[in-house]
């Protein structure tokens, strides 16, 4: 067992490639990380594509086509541990905005040759189709958190990823609160930690890249936004973007729909 390196596979569904790029963006750690595993399947980085089974599978992207559904079922069979990375894989991503569209309306939009395309009417997270062993949040994910998760799975321990809100990180950084000081909408109080309160550090309200934290109080935050003078459309929009189909954000956006 000690002689055999664990086999790592990286898969892609419907996505922008950014989350798997996070691994290649970990320039200081990349060679060490990849020296610890057998990079058995990672088409974006290597021509060598080994067959499964794999010890760890990372999957980015959401399920949007019949082909994706077949692929993810096969991938699940081949991976001992399956880790969904990023907002697309964990919540359906920005492309889940289609989930509110009237599909009949879409089919009416004239396209040169729509018969060439096949797609599902919803963009769904990986967990809607198969069991997922861990979900790493973010649009994009935090590369250091990805390394931590890989490290944890390789060493059979629980990943050390805090599940509190962005607001906590922001307070720890000593940022001025953009809601209080600048009257900006900020999802920091309900968004999962992971970015180190990036947007408030740049004088801008959080827009929820990491999705809802555990038990978020979105309705109180929405009523705070209303008191600050924002209308329903603004509130619906801020909850309806990169993690729009994560349950808490979906419900709050729908509560503010006309």
């Amino acid at each position: 067992m000690v002689n055999k390196k664990p086999k790592l596979a990286v898969f892609k569904m419907s996505s922008c490639d950014g989350c798997q790029l996070s691994l290649l963006d970990a320039e200081d750690e990349l060679l060490d990380v990849l020296a610890g595993v057998d990079m058995a399947y990672f088409p974006e980085a290597s021509s060598r594509m080994m067959h499964g089974p794999y010890d760890i599978g990372l999957v980015e992207g959401s399920i949007t086509t019949p082909r994706n559904v077949e692929e993810i079922r096969q991938i699940r069979k081949e991976c001992k541990a399956l880790i969904a990375i990023g907002a697309c894989a964990t919540a359906g991503g920005i492309q889940a905005l289609r989930n509110w569209k009237d599909t009949r309306e879409f089919t009416k939009i004239v396209y040169a040759s729509p018969e060439y395309i096949s797609t599902l009417d919803r963009s769904m997270p990986i967990s809607a189709f198969v069991h997922v062993d861990y979900e790493l949040r973010g649009c994009p994910i935090n590369k250091y958190q990805l390394i931590e998760v890989l490290n944890a799975f390789l060493n059979r321990r629980k990943p050390n990823i805090p599940s509190y809100s962005v607001c906590i990180d922001c307070k720890l950084k000593g940022n001025v609160c953009v809601m209080v000081a600048h009257n900006q909408m900020c999802l920091g109080p309900v968004t999962h930690s992971g970015c180190n309160a990036l947007c408030p550090s740049y004088n801008r309200g959080c827009f929820g890249c990491y999705g809802p934290m555990d038990s978020p109080n979105t309705s109180t935050l929405a009523s705070q936004f209303r008191q600050m003078g924002y209308g329903k459309f603004d509130i619906m929009n801020i909850f309806r973007n990169y993690n729009c189909y994560a349950e808490a954000f979906r419900k709050e956006s729908e509560a503010n729909e006309k």
């Binding site: 490639d17 004239v110 395309i117």
Partner: peptide, 13 residues
């Protein structure tokens, strides 16, 4: 990923 983002939808249920 860039090249494929903009097609209008054809639905297959």
């Amino acid at each position: 990923s860039c090249a494929t983002h903009f097609l209008t939808l054809h639905i297959e249920r």
